[in-house]
Design a binder for these strands. Sequence first.
DNA 1: ATAGGGTTAG
Length: 515
Amino acid sequence: MLYATRYAILKLHRFLLPSSNLLAFMPYAHRTRLCLLHSQPLPSRDAYKFDNVEDAVALFNCKVDMHPQPSIVELTKILGTIVKMKYYATAIHLYTHMESKGILPFSVTLNIMINCYGHAGQMGFALSVMSKFVKWGFKPSAVTFTTLMKGLCLNGKILDALYIYGKIVAKGFWFDEVMYGTLINGLCKSGETRVALQRLWKMEGQFVKPNLVMYNIVVDGLCKDGLLNDALDLYFNMLGRGISPDIVTYTSLIYGFCHAGQWKEAGLLLNVIFVKDISLDVYTFNIIIDALCKEEMLLQAHDLCDVMILRGQQPNIITYTILMNGYCLNNKVDEARNLFDMVIERGVVPDVWSYNILIKGYCKINRVDEARNLMKDMFRKNIVPNIVTYNTLVDGLCKAGRISSAREIVNEMHYCGQPFPNVTTYNIILDFVCKNQHLDEAIRLFKSLIFERRFVPNVWSYNILISGYCKNKRLDGAMNLLQDMFKNLDPNIETYNILLHALCDRQQLGKMSKT
DNA sequence: ATAGGGTTAG
């Protein structure tokens, strides 16, 4: 009898069993518990579905301890569902436990583990899984290599991903659509848009053709880099290939032109969308509302928000944050706050970003106590403040002259580590100390931070101090710091501006040409 | 069929 027929009959048989008929109407988690109680094998005909990780973990642990040992396929299925819920660390833990019990993985299990290590930021372990393929005689598949490349890209190792790509191609292995998609996205997200573009051009003549999403990824990358002509070239190239650009393509292009201040082009593209009768989505509206806000056209921005609702698109928390930011930029913090309160009343849940914008707004107009209250409000609502929240507040407190409160918060960050102070935090303090004419104290602080708190200064840290030296007419000190900076960092345009300004002031043009 | 990618906004 054919295997498929046997399987079909078996399935039917299972279904007709009275107990399983009853079970079919129960949530799967309950079925799991029932099966555990009666130590019956689970119906394996459908995929595992769990309401929460705990159930999945419980089932996995139960199966691992069973006698005789369960099939690795069953365990792999459970691992797969846990990974789909994004509990990578849990899956790694379970896998280790399984291996310690002497249960050996097979190729699919290993693929899952590479995925887990990639998301957990442990590429070293992911690579050691690769060697297990060889050790146990499994063949890495297209899935294996895709997963590995994605992990490398996620962890900023785009060069390694490209190396793997080169190796695979050199072996005469064909890249499929998914592999190319992974690589192109990885390249764009690592800022290597040009390489991604070259890859895309090369694909044109190959067996696997670039698809809409691949085009969109590269168009977006080009727009983010401000390479608008290239983005338009690619757009026309799509049209020529018979791939219709969608709302995502247009949204990326409009974003690019808006950010370049090329309103006419952005408007033309918007017109194309209307002519083609493509409906705008929330992203498109948000980008245009943001552009209007940045151009101080707050009324129009607000009107567009209403248009959005009329057209059946609900503004989301990002829309409201954009509007709030628009108000704050114009020092209309109370209006931003009114909007914020109204949004919450309407049942939209605020997030960290929306709080951060409002906190920044209050700090800017020196109402730091209201900023602090907002942070307390976050704790009440279980919205976890992030490093931006803390840095904004520390900066606000410093600028309001409340240095002891600022230091209190930084110390709290340092000892609780939730979040840890970063370069920006320390730069805010350095800037404050410098601006208040305590240059020598700032230098002392700078050195002690490096030695005691493992502070790694960036260009801005140096710029702050160099600027401090310049304002105190101590150009030698500024030059020494510049020398010091050259050891690890490249100065940026701001560094040169500060120095040129100071040197021009003293008309020491001879020194200027040296820098 | 248990495993792999994918685009836009603050």
